[in-house]
């Protein structure tokens, strides 16, 4: 069982308390009704599904109930870091090369 750090609780908690909520940093358009079919397709259906680093949304469902973002390695399952919802995509990951 993984330990996941909730950036709001500032604690590592067992994964049973959390729920994955899909890929992060997919912005909902401010002009949703005016989106083209192609743009809506990109927004709603297309996901990156990478081998390696993925940016995800998680919810501390059975804890503080907050949504937050996490950087996870899909190969090792390791959580690289977590950060609060609304914060920008980190430009540099801990442990990454200089």
């Amino acid at each position: 069982m993984l330990l996941i750090r909730c950036p709001y609780c500032e604690e590592e908690r067992p994964e049973l308390e959390f729920r994955n909520a899909g890929e992060a940093h997919i912005a909902r358009s401010a002009n949703m009704a005016g989106e083209s079919d192609d743009d809506f397709e990109k927004f709603f259906f297309i996901r990156s599904n990478p081998k390696g680093i993925i940016y995800e949304r998680w919810r501390h469902m059975h804890g503080c109930a907050r949504f937050f973002n996490a950087v996870r390695d899909t190969v090792t399952d390791k959580f690289v870091m977590t950060y609060k919802a609304g914060e920008p995509k980190p430009s540099k990951l801990p442990g990454a090369g200089k």
């Binding site: 909520a21 949304r57 919810r59 109930a65 907050r66 949504f67 919802a85 609304g86």
Partner: peptide
């Protein structure tokens, strides 16, 4: 409830 919280916390904070 989850759906509402999701939008409130992340899309319409």
């Amino acid at each position: 409830m989850n759906h509402m919280e999701d939008y409130l916390q992340t899309e319409f904070p």
